[in-house]
Design a protein around this nucleic acid. Sequence first.
DNA 1: TTGTACGCGTTATCAG
DNA 2: CTGATAACGCGTACAA
Lengths: 336, 336
Amino acid sequence: MTIYDISEKAGVSIATVSRVLNGSSSVSEKTRQKVLDVMEACDYTPNAFARGLGLNTMNTIGLLCTNCSDLYLSKAVYYIEQGLRANHYDALLYCTGQDKESKENALKFLLSKKVDGIILIGSDFISEKAEDNSYIQEAAKELPIMLFDAVLDAPNVYSIASDDFQSTYEATLALLSAGVKDILFFYQAASYSDSRKLAGHKEAMSKMGLPISPSLALAFSGSLENINAMVDTLQNASKSGTTFHSIIASNDTLALAALKYAKQENLKVPEQFSIIGYNNSMLTSCCDPELTSIDNKIETLCGELITLLMEVLAGNPVPQKTMLSGELVKRGTTTF
Amino acid sequence: MTIYDISEKAGVSIATVSRVLNGSSSVSEKTRQKVLDVMEACDYTPNAFARGLGLNTMNTIGLLCTNCSDLYLSKAVYYIEQGLRANHYDALLYCTGQDKESKENALKFLLSKKVDGIILIGSDFISEKAEDNSYIQEAAKELPIMLFDAVLDAPNVYSIASDDFQSTYEATLALLSAGVKDILFFYQAASYSDSRKLAGHKEAMSKMGLPISPSLALAFSGSLENINAMVDTLQNASKSGTTFHSIIASNDTLALAALKYAKQENLKVPEQFSIIGYNNSMLTSCCDPELTSIDNKIETLCGELITLLMEVLAGNPVPQKTMLSGELVKRGTTTF
DNA sequence: TTGTACGCGTTATCAG
DNA sequence: CTGATAACGCGTACAA
């Protein structure tokens, strides 16, 4: 069933059918109704491929994400997909894993699929080394690229992120004000957002004139699924002589591991041991005491990202960098 | 840069370029190399839309899922996307929520997008009422539909699921053998898989000649993000006079809530109170004691689903219904 | 207001 | 082995 069949049955030209289809101007109500009736009767649906060829778009946005089953990233995928859908765009999902080459291939692949834009979900796509980000700048020459939870200053690249530096800065100050000493910063990788968090922590420490031992910034290199490996990492640090009475974690999973560690060490939380997580996920309420955590407002971030993307696609100017504030949500693992 | 440009620069016809592009038969090595050189030099990429129009496919599979940020479903999305990618198919993601009309619209929408097949992720798409599933049968007339974690007997619909009935049956027997009494079955919704789980539990109970009080099958109707609401539900049940010393939950989140409930009631786990979860997710290791849980082998299920889908797309006959066995993974919340 | 005719970039079917 | 040329189904100037 094509536009030709409809035009024939309705006794009009295909141009008229096309006009009706696109709610185009100037079609007499009479013929319009006739065409609609025929379409209805034939259960006609325009061919998406032909349409794509003619219009050079299929209203699709590529979603790149290292791991869509990650507790945090899956939330972002969810909100972003909802937002795209609300704006009549489809989401083409591509999970790349951490391999650099795989990320680059994925980006190239999406270009060849002729999506209208690409959203990089998570800061894992941005490296500290500027030259490693050139693949993004290259792709941005062909279509707009939105960064969720990361920042890169480049033409046609738009960054939307939470102010992780500031949030961690304030969290550290809050702990220090509460009289906590020996804060261990427990993070996962050298990603953009984690390094911003660490930087905020260090800034707060140095502002208070406190030294920062390198051993008090502990990186966990395993899978986020493996909580016991995180606990082991903490235990090893402790055995190696690192002293800490508090942990700021770069996500709630690590914070949960910190809590498990504290319990195994028979440390009373929060009296003897304080913990602050990050993301304010459902994990914060699955334990006892519940996790104090930094809410980076993921839903708001995603909403803003979609709004900006729509403006960009419409050809309107938008800010290249959007930063939103986080919020410390106080629960049972801190004394305040 | 089109196929015409390439043909011109290479001094051949577009037909030859197309042949080279598709690794088609009979092109002399000489011209083949010449064409490839020109393509390389021009950084040529074939237009995906034109290709789609000609071949009537863009190698895309629609992924329908009520909520891709769900701990369990996001895992399925992940494995399925990986599998599709490995077979050169793209994943078009569509999250529908629980609204029935939204599910139906999503399915129709994907048809109009001319995807090659559709995967319904999660049992939320299958209703107990047969007539409510007609929208799936209707869509299956146009393209193959794969069901992950659900079963529906209809033409061109292929079901891949874990044997939830059997798994829960065995889990119940294991608890009873360990001397546990008053098992509460804690589940979420009247979905296909949850009702199968409940049925397996009841079967085991009746096999052992034990009565099943309706109050010992407790449904939680809130969000899976809200653990405290689950705990409240359990507490209300207890206050209402329901006695239970053990819980089998239809997912790990509910099981975690059960553990939280037990701790609040100062019940020693597993000595005084046993808990079995479902899905064997990372949640099983985030608590203390760790959760005994039923592993429904999600990765295997997804792998099998992809294998079958590829066969179906290749036009080969495949079984309509594939059931895999689960496995009870014993940890700290049971005495065995 | 309506219709004609061409373009979009491929693939595939024929001849040669 | 290669080259014209016709689909594929729709959007849209341009003409009427």
